[in-house]
Amino acid sequence: MRKLRVAVFKLTSCSGCLNEVIYSMMVHPELLRYVSISYFTELQDLNAVEEVDVAIVEGSVVNSEQEELVRLVRERAKLVAALGTCAVFGGVQSLRVGEDLRTTVLASYPNPDFIRVSPDVKSLDSVVRVDYRLPGCPVNGESLARLLVKLVLGGTETPIHESLCSECKRKGIPCVVVLRKEPCLGPVTVADCGALCPSFGRGCYGCHGLNALVVDKGRLEEFSRVVERLGMSRDDLRALLKAFSHASLSRLSSAG
């Protein structure tokens, strides 16, 4: 079997998803025999942006250098996978969108002179075509491993789009909303995280992103009322959605 040529890039992000890439290869060491990595600055010293089968990109796009890099990556990769919520939706740094950029930068960095960011925080697919989206903050390493195995074998995953609640019920996890009366974003959040938070008795905070193929503005408003009654303020909900679903929130349709 020919090795799958992989490159892993990091844009604006916390690197937590890169850790998941490394963990997933530790859990599935056999993968290493079937992939060759040409770019992964966190893992190796020699890196070059070469032609690859799949480019895995972590992080959101926040300046023109990153846009250029991403375009180059797209040109040289047969497939591009957006890794983690930052790459898929923008991620936590989207919280600064709409705020005064200078104030935000000054509040965060002692030497703001080195920070070059645009006012917007872009998801990967708003800059280049993306073939796979693996959301999560951090990404579920098992989902990534499953995808890599299938890519090595010459195929791909068959996507199934459903909300987190399906996953909870299949696992028999007691419902945080109905049994505990706690706010949970599970009903409007895309599944495949393994229902991690509800399995520890806490509400989902939506890190896999809003189920925007189903939830339009009207339904989101209805849902907001429900979580508000459960004790989550509108501001908190807005913050969570902005932090984990920025890109899809701004595309949300009003009809449907």
């Binding site: 010459g154 195929g155 791909t156 068959t158 996507p159």
Partner: peptide
Amino acid sequence: IGSVTNYIYAK
């Protein structure tokens, strides 16, 4: 056109 048919076509 889908994940399985693409695989069959390619492989």
